[in-house]
């Protein structure tokens, strides 16, 4: 009886001590999570998620007020990475991924106003005042900022056609039974 009481007390005391030591020894200063998440985000502050920028989105994800699938520009790849970082499973089915889109400028309507140049987060627009603008496809993220600013509707988002090397095999339908 006494042996049991004493051994359990000792055990509890030891484990408690261990926990206490670990808590002080391995204490984490501040919250590094948001910074780590910001490092993963595209950083173009395009605003497609509806938040003030990538840092705000990272903050929201860390707080749990936004899901990891919030960033359309990052797509499935970013959602997977964020999910890994946060240690949560990601339902990729949530992402409405109707394929990447790129901005295209209709040259016959463009008036060379330069408004799109100013709002492009990745400097993908080239051109000068009174010159027809164009898009550097490699740099465009398809955020759509230029579409909103274009006064003549020359800038539009066009889906990138799927090509042979970029085709993805569909996932098999689940078994019946």
């Amino acid at each position: 009886m006494f042996a049991a009481v004493i051994s359990l007390t000792l055990l509890g005391a030891l484990l408690g001590l261990g926990l206490g030591v670990a808590a002080t020894r391995f204490a984490v200063e501040g919250d590094p999570l948001v910074d780590e998440l910001i490092a993963l985000m595209p950083g173009s502050n395009c605003g497609q998620c509806g938040m003030a920028g990538c840092a705000a989105a990272a903050q929201a994800i860390a707080e749990g007020s936004a899901t990891v699938t919030v960033c359309p520009a990052g797509g499935k790849a970013l959602a997977t990475m964020l999910g890994e970082k946060l240690g949560i499973s990601v339902d990729l089915g949530d992402i409405v991924d109707d394929g990447p889109k790129l901005a295209v400028i209709a040259e016959e309507i463009c008036i060379g106003c330069c408004r799109c140049l100013k709002v492009c987060p990745t400097d993908a627009m080239i051109g000068a005042p009174k010159q027809i603008h164009n898009v550097i496809r490699e740099a465009c993220t398809g955020c759509g900022n230029c579409i909103e600013r274009c006064p003549t509707g020359a800038a539009t988002l066009q889906p990138v056609p799927v090509t042979l090397p970029h085709w993805v095999w569909p996932k098999p339908a689940p078994a019946l039974a």
Partner: peptide, 27 residues
């Protein structure tokens, strides 16, 4: 088909990761 799907999907994710890194650099 499971494996082909997974391989091509992983490649696609890798491509978009590279693209995102480029985007981040440009930004």
């Amino acid at each position: 088909q499971y494996f082909s799907h997974a391989k091509s999907e992983l490649w696609a994710q890798e491509r978009s990761t590279l693209r995102m890194e480029a985007t981040r650099k440009l930004a």
